[in-house]
């Protein structure tokens, strides 16, 4: 933060402003955020046996969000009490995230770079939302995530499924409507739940819960049993 010159800070400030603009280019992510958070919250409560009315369920725990962007997930995790580390490959995202967290008065350890080469400790909670479909080697990425998971920890992942439905809906509709920046999603690289499950198992983990994220007209996205479009899952050590 201190190493940023003022003109750059301004640039990242406007980049952060766009990331955090609920009607800006990340509008879809903003709308998805409460639903994803609800899933993560339920997973946390279930995994650690926490009451669902507790305001700081992650107090005393550490969390790592990989592919954190400007902090849409990292910030809520910090408010839930976790000491959070956010990692993103794009340095400009990290700078935007730092500017925003400072404005919110949140302390979050943001790092830019490649997860495997960053020398991080292990975390109680590891999350990576809508990232695996972008990486060159998904299996290696899953292994790198698993390497950062502390014993007794919880991992939560989400990603689009590779189905005809997702091809139609995500790639065509969402991008045409401009709700996801064009070119963000490359359907061929989408990972199916059984493929992701196998990768997690190879990394020594087991999948606990698998849930679909379904678009409902007029209601945005809801959690359900249909995994065809997008899914979330939890994993832990065997």
């Amino acid at each position: 933060m201190t190493s940023i010159v003022p003109a750059e800070a301004e640039h990242f400030g406007s980049l952060a402003a766009d990331w955090w603009d609920p009607k800006g280019s990340s509008a879809m992510l903003h709308r998805l955020n409460p639903v994803r958070l609800r899933y993560i919250r339920e997973a946390i409560d279930h995994h650690w046996g926490i009451d669902d009315t507790e305001r700081h369920p992650l107090a005393g725990r550490s969390a790592l969000d990989v592919g954190c962007g400007a902090g849409l997930l990292a910030e809520p995790l910090a408010r839930l009490g976790a000491s959070v580390t956010g990692v993103d490959a794009a340095p400009e995202n990290i700078d935007a995230a730092r500017v925003h967290a400072a404005g919110q008065g949140l302390t979050i350890d943001y790092r830019s770079g490649d997860l495997a080469s960053l020398n991080l400790r292990r975390f109680d909670l590891v999350t990576s939302m809508e990232v695996i479909e972008h990486v060159a080697d998904p299996a290696a990425f899953v292994q790198a995530l698993a390497d950062r998971l502390a014993p007794g920890g919880l991992m939560v992942l989400s990603t689009p499924n590779r189905t005809t439905a997702s091809k139609l809906l995500l790639v065509e509709a969402a991008e045409r409507l401009g709700q996801v920046p064009r070119g963000t999603h490359d359907w061929d690289k989408f990972v199916r739940p059984e493929e992701l499950t196998a990768m997690l198992e190879d990394a020594g983990l087991i999948v606990g819960d698998l849930r679909g994220l379904v678009p409902m007209p007029g209601r945005g996205f809801v959690l359900g049993d249909n995994h065809a479009i997008n899914y979330l899952l939890t994993a832990r050590y065997r």
Binding site: H30, L37, R41, D52, E54, P76, R79, Q104
Partner: peptide, 9 residues
Amino acid sequence: RLGLDLGDA
């Protein structure tokens, strides 16, 4: 309880 900013849009 989801950790959202209470002024979130």
